[in-house]
């Protein structure tokens, strides 16, 4: 499949290439992802972040794919929802937050296999700090790609006279990660080049997937961690 340019309108079933620069990933975001307040990471971490952000831009191949489903393709039933005949079980909390949704966006995003290879190469230097910083940059890069997609979903929702929910992903809150298989069955085959292992691990590893609800009554959680029950999550704030 051909990838569309980033400034193209949001189209059902399409995949988009997003330039590294468009994601505006900055050192403060990487520091925050590691747990530090911006500017508080000890030396040599800030220097490593600055160096590896430049390197990451040469290895990233960011892609985002989306499908849009609207009622009656979307049916909500208690803790489960049915999208185009595929049953998803995101759990009570997420289903509750999706209860006013008339349309859902199912998406996947990846930083590309080049980023996975580059992260492995950084660990192989024998400097675990470089490896960890590279890994964090890879994670943040794909989260920023999902942010990029979410902004376009919000624009799309506004066009429908709707609001959006937060992003929800298998593996977070009460949504079991094994549901990746059902979620990906709703996306184009090998969406963005992402494949799933038997244990629902996405390859490339630096990939994310999920859904966003749209409806006149939908709301975004001000802090998604307040909704989530995963007390030991590494992203919890």
């Amino acid at each position: 499949m051909d990838f569309l340019e980033a400034d193209a309108p949001l189209l059902d079933g399409e995949e988009y290439s997003v330039e590294f620069e468009a994601l505006a990933l900055n050192p403060a975001q990487v520091e925050w992802a590691m747990g530090y307040e911006p500017g508080q990471a000890p030396e040599p971490v800030p220097g490593v972040i600055a160096e590896l952000l430049v390197e990451a831009s040469r290895h990233a191949s960011v892609k985002v794919g989306v499908r849009l489903f609207r009622a009656p393709e979307v049916l909500l039933d208690g803790a489960a929802m049915q999208v185009d005949g595929v049953v998803l079980n995101p759990g009570d909390r997420i289903a509750g937050l999706l209860s006013g949704a008339r349309e859902v966006a199912i998406y996947a995003a990846t930083a590309g296999s080049g980023v996975d290879d580059w992260i492995r190469a950084q660990f192989a230097t024998g400097d675990p700090v470089r490896g960890y910083v590279a890994d964090t940059i890879g994670s943040e890069l794909v989260e920023r790609a999902a942010d990029w997609l979410e902004e376009r979903v919000i624009d799309h929702a506004i066009g429908l006279g709707c609001f959006t929910t937060s992003r929800f992903s298998p593996g977070f809150c009460e949504w079991d990660v094994s549901e990746q298989h059902a979620l990906f069955s709703l996306l184009p085959r090998a969406c963005c080049g992402i494949t799933l292992t038997e244990t629902a691990l996405m390859l490339p590893v630096k990939s994310v997937s999920g859904l966003i609800g749209m409806g006149p009554e939908c709301e975004r959680a001000t802090n998604a961690c307040m909704v989530c029950t995963m007390k030991t999550c590494f992203r919890r704030r």
Binding site: G35, P128, V129, V133
Partner: peptide
């Protein structure tokens, strides 16, 4: 402290 601090201590 955070992961990089632990990694530097490990080095």
């Amino acid at each position: 402290v955070f992961v990089p601090d632990l990694l530097m201590a490990s080095k």
